[in-house]
Simulated assay, not measured.
Amino acid sequence: MSTEEGSTVHICCGREADRAVDLRGRGIDPERLVAAIRGQAPSSGGESADAEATVAVDCAPPRPVHEHVGWVRPATTIRVRTALAAAARSRGGEAPQDDELAEVREALSDLTVPSPPDVRGPRERLAGTDAAVDRIHERVAALRGRVQAGREAGRDVSDLEAELADATRELSERETERAAAREALERAERRARESRDARERRRRLEDRRANLERRARAHLVDRICGEYETAMATVPGAPADAADDPFDVDGVTAALAVARVAELRAPVVLACGRFETADTAAEWLDAPVVRV
C-alpha cells in the first residue's frame, strides 16, 4: 500500500495484504527506494537523480541477502554462489566453519597494525654521530700525542692542554649523542619489527578468513543448490538454455531464482519487466514486492 503526502510517497509493504505495490509512473527514483528499504542514504548519482518524489518505507529490516537480490533491474549482475550462500543464511543455514570464522573475524577486528616508523632518519643520525665521534677521537689522540711530546721536550703545553680538554669534552658530548642515536635507532627498528609482525599476522588471518569463507560458502551453496536449479527452470522470461549452467546465466534470471529460494522480509524492488503485475511477482517470489 502507498500513500502520498506532499512530495513524499509513504509505502507500507510486507503485511500479507500489502505484499505487492506498483509505483510505475509515480516519479520514484528506484535507487532512493532501495536505500529507504535498507535504511541507507542514497548515493548522489542514482538512475533518476532528478526525480522529485521522495520515499518513506515501512517494512521489516532486510537480511543481508537483500544486498544481492533486493533490486532487480536490467543492469543486475550478481555473484551467484555468494548470493546463494546469503539466501541459505536467510533461512537459518549454518556452516561447520562458522565458529572458527567468527573467531578469526574477531581477531582481525582486535588486531592493531602500527604504521611503520621512519628507520632511515635514525640510521642516518647514528651514522653521522659515529663519524663525528671517530673524527674527534682522532683529534683527541693527536692532541694527547702532542702534549706528551711537548712535556718530554720541556716546552709549555698549557695551550695544548686547554685544547685537549675542549676536545675531550666535545668527544664526551658526541659519544652521549651517539648513545642516544643508537637507542633511537633500536627503538625504531623494534617498532618496525612489531609493525612487520602485525602485518604478517593480519595477512595470515585474512588468508585464513578467506579460506574459511570459501569453505562455508561452498557448504551453504550445496545445501540450497538443488532448489535454486528448480527455481531457475520456472523463472519468467529465462533463456531456454538457462538450466544448462545455472551459474552462468544473465543477472536478472539468476537474481530472481536466488530471490525465490531466499527468505526475504523486506520488499524486492523490481524493474525488470519479467512479471505482468506486482501481485504476480509477489506470489512467484513469495516475498513483498515493489514494482517500479
Rank of each mutant, 00 (worst) to 15 (best):
S90V: 12
R26T: 12
D22H: 03
A165H: 13
W71K: 00
H10D: 05
E67H: 04
D241F: 01
L264M: 12
G14A: 01
L143P: 08
L220E: 01
A231I: 04
L205Y: 04
T77W: 04
A240C: 04
A210G: 07
I224E: 08
G25A: 09
E52A: 14
P246F: 00
D248Y: 08
A53D: 05
R155K: 14
S44Q: 06
E4P: 00
R26H: 09
D159L: 12
E52K: 12
L111E: 10
V292G: 01
A86R: 09
G39E: 09
L256V: 10
E94S: 15
I224C: 08
E213N: 05
S43W: 10
E194R: 06
S172D: 13
R63F: 08
V292L: 13
V292A: 02
A88K: 03
R24H: 06
R19V: 03
D222A: 07
G121K: 15
E124N: 10
A262Y: 00
T168N: 14
R79H: 09
C59L: 04
R144C: 11
Q148G: 15
R155L: 15
E47H: 09
H219Q: 09
R265E: 14
G145W: 10
R32K: 15
L270F: 03
V258W: 14
A262N: 01
R223C: 01
I224F: 03
L264K: 02
A198K: 10
F247T: 05
R144V: 01
D159H: 14
V292C: 00
P30T: 06
A20W: 02
E106P: 00
C225E: 06
V119R: 12
D207E: 15
R26D: 14
L101H: 11
T253C: 10
G150A: 15
L111V: 11
A218T: 11
E194I: 07
R182Q: 15
A88G: 15
